[in-house]
């Protein structure tokens, strides 16, 4: 029953997010601040992870291609497919659930504990709109991060491939251009937008409706990471089934 209650409360929060909007002059600043906190500040870690995991994907692929009949272009092809279809949208989103999700839950949760949310509500402000909506708008720029992850993942793969001596640069470039299906990009970005919505709302829910003190803020951050990850994995499966099969 408590799960059903939580799910209902989550959807009511989403509805409330669009009600009684905060003054635009105030909201504008909040959106820019959240773009800085959630998007700009994530570029570094995402770039780092994407570049090196792209390299690892390439090395693993190359090392498993022992049959001399398999063309070397397959290394680039496999790296591109892995990075675009799964690694960038899904794997990075799980990492973001930890980084951005924990940040959102702990910042909103701390505001709950220190009565700052009560202060907003007493003033007659729709605290859900004030706190969650700017994060939702900021994370609509999330595909920008995923695009960077895709680019750097393939670039990291290229560096690993060439410097590791697994295939030539020409083979790798030919591989990443091989049988390119533009619909796969659409699929990846549809997933990205859905995950961005989850990244903005699930951690906000866990922060906004938490009760207790500082210890519970930590627990709420962990719970929010778990549930955001679960939701991402489940929706990843459903969207893949719907769009690719």
């Amino acid at each position: 029953m408590s799960y059903l209650h939580s799910i209902g409360q989550y959807f009511l929060m989403i509805k409330a997010m669009f009600h009684k909007p905060t003054k635009w002059s105030v909201m504008r600043h909040l959106i820019f601040k959240d773009i800085d906190d959630l998007i700009i500040n994530s570029i570094g870690i995402v770039s780092f992870i994407a570049f090196f995991v792209g390299g690892v994907v390439t090395i693993q692929t190359a090392l498993n291609m022992t049959n001399p009949l398999i063309p070397k272009t397959l290394v680039g092809f496999a790296t591109r497919q892995s990075v675009i279809l799964e690694f960038a949208p899904t794997f990075i989103s799980i990492i973001m659930a930890g980084k951005v999700g924990s940040f959102i839950t702990s910042s909103i949760g701390t505001m709950r504990v220190t009565e700052q949310i009560d202060a907003l509500e007493v003033m007659g402000i729709n605290a859900i709109n004030y706190l969650v909506f700017p994060k939702f708008v900021a994370l609509m720029l999330y595909p920008f991060i995923i695009s960077i992850a895709m680019f750097l993942g393939i670039l990291g793969g290229m560096a690993a491939c060439v410097f590791g001596g697994f295939a030539s640069l020409d083979d790798y470039i030919a591989g990443i251009q091989l049988d390119f299906i533009p619909f796969h990009m659409l699929y990846a970005f549809v997933k990205t937008f859905v995950f961005a919505f989850l990244l903005a709302t699930i951690p906000s829910y866990h922060g906004f409706f938490m009760t207790g003190g500082a210890l519970e803020v930590g627990k709420a951050s962990t719970t929010s990471f778990v549930w955001t990850s679960v939701a991402i994995i489940l929706l990843n499966y459903i969207l893949t089934q719907m769009m690719l099969s």
Binding site: K33, T110, T114, E115, Q116, D118, A119
Partner: peptide, 9 residues
């Protein structure tokens, strides 16, 4: 508020 509830940021 008891804890002042000032906005930290």
């Amino acid at each position: 508020f008891q804890g002042s509830a000032l906005f930290d940021s």
